[in-house]
Design a protein around this nucleic acid. Structure first.
Lengths: 342, 342
DNA sequence: AGACTCTCTGAAAACGTTTACTTGGCGCCG
DNA sequence: CGGCGCCAAGTAAACGTTTTCAGAGAGTCT
């Protein structure tokens, strides 16, 4: 249907080589030929066939983005960050999601062979087949938020541990002793790191209490309801993400428990609505868009130089404690203290 | 780097044709050969090269998704809906965003030639070059929320008009007479439709008052602050989307104006946080994920049958009025009344 | 037992590009 | 005035598949 290079060549009365030369690197082509080709091309509304082109060029100008599950602002922001960086470099984005585990990820991954120049993947899942086998050999890859031992390539990981420790320590410093943690799913790397950070932040004096959750608003709601009804009501709650924190807040408010007066509350991620709930949520800010951007930049580098020296590095993405009213420590420590490194 | 079909053939001591036959439609191949091929393939970790394959198959198993700007829950949900439907059909998703206008969209569009089997695009922008020229001829396309005259293909449009009319009428029915509308950007089709719906919903008795906005939280905040300070404070505000409504709510609350007691408030979209702000926001629910899913299904159909009969149809995606506390009519009309069709 | 048919396999063409190599024409220098 | 060299344009190979076509071998029917 669409015009091919042959059609253009025929119409311009030149060889297909001349058409290609004119349209690409334009290495030495007569003005006469050049003009004829351009006219023919625009007349036929010609666009090179990407598949054919990339077959011989060995470059697709596309990078694959594998995400655990597209969900909420978090991923929207991530995609946004990656997309902007990609677009500014003339790269396309092949997005794939909902791989519930590494096996499924491996599947999605192999089907990308010949489709992408590099891979950006976020796979916090733990267990299952390793990804190394599935990775088409020689395909540059940058990982995000993964626990996989490096060695595959570069990785960017959010400082989940540091952030969780910081917010927990902040609660402790605010005077709370009995702090409950609503954790994320057990097979999620970030979730584990946040639990670890929580424990580290508690210090010696406080006893750890962990409730199961799965990062959904509903699980936060259920946890909140349970806590409100409980006779061992804690002084503070740190939910492993804002979504659960908000669900929890909803349940507490519904039960007549005042936040932060009766129970202080903290979250993680600083999703946009965190500022808008009442009371505004104390949380840990993660700049996912920035992480996406950096990951893509890094990927571009290793595509350009496949044998580059900077392989197998792990970069930690800094987070920032954001103190708002929900933790009850607003008046004391309202200056958001930067928390960087791990 | 990666193994090709030739490597497999050599290792299995058969021709490449046999390899291809074994791996694809497996049309009659001897168990002996079959086993040798499979063994060789798995040994070499072979994956067909997608570009080469699609070059001859004339099918990429990829569909392009063009979005105005990836932003917030709205697009996250849209991508989610499309992605799920695509994945269940073994299709890949090439996502492109941030085309600020039709010219840029046209650009992104042509670079997808040979990369995708079909196009799913959402382009609410008005003005600029028409898209018909840019569309690679013969590429099945499904549009979403566009004002372009049909004729290009199928289109799905959210019932912005109907939704806006419904919520405005609801406010009128609740007894408010002076209702201000915070509108979206002037070059956005949906924005115009919502203004139109607002006017229609007001009926004869009420005077229309429209404030400019641009769909951002900040513009809603500014509008809210202006209204709070104004001496002609309205009885109710209908913001063209929830994001602005929430910004407005924030400003009003900050200024000591109580919602809904002093000013009633309504939004549009029913983003997840609409339920969680205080008071919960009365709004119009739009199931974007469902729209994405339906659009993709429709696209798949027209890819399978390029000369299908159902071309150039426009389907309206129904919306639903969701009455919550912010409009002050909660106790009266709390039953969410379905609003379908346009 | 011979011929016909059927089935499986391999050779080769095709998809739409890019690019190395070849050819041809022209100018310049000897 | 003739040869040499350079530059532009064309020819063809290559990328990794799928698929058509042809051939070979075996089985069956007469």
């Amino acid at each position: 249907m669409a015009a091919t290079i042959k059609d253009v060549a025929r119409r311009a009365r030149v060889s297909i080589a001349s058409v290609s030369r004119t349209l690409n690197h334009s290495s030495s082509v007569t003005p006469n030929v050049r003009e004829r080709v351009l006219r023919a091309a625009s007349r036929l509304n010609y666009t090179p066939h990407a598949a054919a082109r990339s077959l011989i060029i060995r470059r697709t100008h596309t990078i694959g983005l594998l995400l655990p599950d597209i969900h909420g602002e978090y991923f929207s922001e991530l995609i946004r960050g990656v997309d902007r960086a990609a677009r500014s470099r003339g790269l396309h984005l092949l997005v794939s999601s909902t791989h519930g585990n590494n096996a499924e990820a491996a599947d999605a991954l192999r089907s990308m062979n010949g489709r992408v120049d590099g891979l950006l993947m976020m796979s916090p899942y733990i267990g299952g087949a390793s990804l190394e086998d599935a990775l088409p050999s020689g395909l540059p890859t940058v990982l995000m938020n993964t626990h996989e031992p490096a060695g595959i390539g570069t990785a960017f990981v959010v400082d989940d541990f540091g952030g969780a420790r910081a917010i927990t320590a902040h609660l402790v410093a605010a005077g709370y002793q009995d702090i409950v943690h609503i954790r994320g799913p057990a097979n999620d790397f970030q979730s584990l790191e946040r639990v670890r950070g929580y424990r580290a932040g508690l210090g010696a004096g406080c006893r750890a209490r962990v409730i199961d959750g799965d990062f959904t608003e509903e699980s936060g709601y259920l946890a909140g309801r349970a806590l409100a009804a409980s006779d061992t009501r804690p002084q503070a709650v740190f939910a492993a993400n804002d979504t659960m924190a908000i669900g929890c807040l909803f349940a507490l408010t519904e039960a007549g428990v005042r936040v932060p007066h009766d129970i202080a509350l903290g979250g993680f991620d600083d999703i946009p609505l965190a500022r808008f709930v009442s009371p505004p949520l104390t949380t840990v800010r993660v700049d996912v868009a920035e992480m996406g951007r950096r990951a893509l930049e890094s990927l571009v580098v290793s595509i350009a130089d496949p044998d580059g020296a900077g392989r197998s590095s792990v970069e930690t993405v800094p987070v920032e404690l954001v103190v708002r009213a929900s933790c009850g420590a607003d008046s004391r420590g309202q200056t958001p203290c930067k928390e960087a490194g791990g």
